[in-house]
């Protein structure tokens, strides 16, 4: 008696069709955010607020309450992303809503201001909000574009492998250089400075390394006049330095892409908290001097 083949009903099926957070559910949140913005624009156009449209009118209060609620909800992404769950409120859905509702704030908050700006705490909150949104737009762009560049640069090489490669090359260089005279050893010593790999924020972002010490070591090596004993060692060192230069190129490109991928967060997140503080000051001051 043959038994029917056992089927694994709990087996997870892999969805090979990747849908980005931007296209989530056929742009559901784009449509919702656009609808919200259109309703707000329509209300702004139809409601005649005198003498100017402003945040202190009934419609202005409505928009203000809506914007405040949205800002607080958008901030909650920071908490939400630390708890991944599937389903309708998956992190992807949340990020999609975060992006599109965040963009709709440009419309809602600008209408709330009534296009009236000045050197005051209210405009400060608006400016901080716009900084958050603009950096967010940058973040979306790099999240869409840069991961491909990151993969193309490093291939199958992991970060751990990159470090091991560099450490290994430096160790070999150090060992090779031990028998050399101090002058020649100094050339190798120049290239094994770990602080010279990535550099500061600017060098990481631009990937410009005019003071690359490996390149300098190679240049010094070309000019060196070694003794007969040292010459074969120097030839080996040159090979290793060439190899290190090519690894460094990949590592530095990797660092640049990674920096560009997350650098915006160093403005986006602090500006968000600055915005929360300015928003608090805005709301409290408006009602303090009602």
């Amino acid at each position: 008696m043959s038994r029917p083949p056992k089927t694994n009903v709990n087996r997870r099926t892999r969805n090979d069709h990747h849908e980005s957070f931007l296209r989530h559910k056929n742009f559901l949140w784009l449509k919702r955010a656009a609808g919200l913005s259109l309703i707000a624009i329509l209300g702004y156009a139809l409601i005649d607020v005198r003498p100017h449209p402003n945040g202190g009118s009934a419609y202005g209060y409505t928009l203000g309450i809506l914007c405040t609620g949205l800002i607080i909800w958008l901030m909650l992404l920071g908490l939400r992303k630390r708890a991944m769950t599937p389903g309708a409120w998956s992190l992807k859905a949340w990020v999609s809503a975060h992006v599109y509702l965040g963009l709709s704030l440009i419309v809602l908050a600008t209408l709330h201001t009534g296009f009236q700006f000045g050197w005051n705490v209210h405009t400060l909150a608006y400016v901080l909000m716009m900084i958050v949104i603009i950096t967010g737009i940058y973040g979306v762009i790099v999240y869409v574009r840069l991961p491909t560049a990151l993969g193309a640069n490093r291939g199958e090489v992991t970060q751990k492998l990159m470090v091991e490669e560099l450490v290994g090359l430096d160790r070999q260089l150090s060992i090779l250089a031990r028998p050399l005279t101090s002058d020649l050893a100094a050339i190798v010593l120049v290239s094994v400075d770990p602080k010279n790999i990535a550099g500061g924020v600017w060098r990481r972002m631009t990937n410009q390394h005019p003071n690359c010490k490996t390149r300098a070591a190679l240049d010094q090596l070309a000019r060196a006049v070694p003794s007969a004993t040292d010459a074969p060692i120097l030839a080996e060192i040159q090979t290793l330095l060439d190899r290190k230069a090519s690894v460094l190129k990949m590592v530095r490109t990797h660092i640049q892409i990674r920096s560009l991928l997350v650098a915006w967060l160093y403005i986006h997140v602090p500006a968000t908290f600055g915005l929360l503080a300015a928003l608090t000051a805005h709301v409290v001051s408006v009602f303090f001097y009602w």
């Binding site: 970060q159 470090v163 770990p194 990535a198 660092i255 997140v269 602090p270 503080a277």
Partner: peptide, 23 residues
Amino acid sequence: LFSPGAGIFGKRAMAWTLAISVL
């Protein structure tokens, strides 16, 4: 080596500094 924030403030420190300053 690969931390993009190396060499600058951490996000949290900057966030606190800015928020407290504004408040």
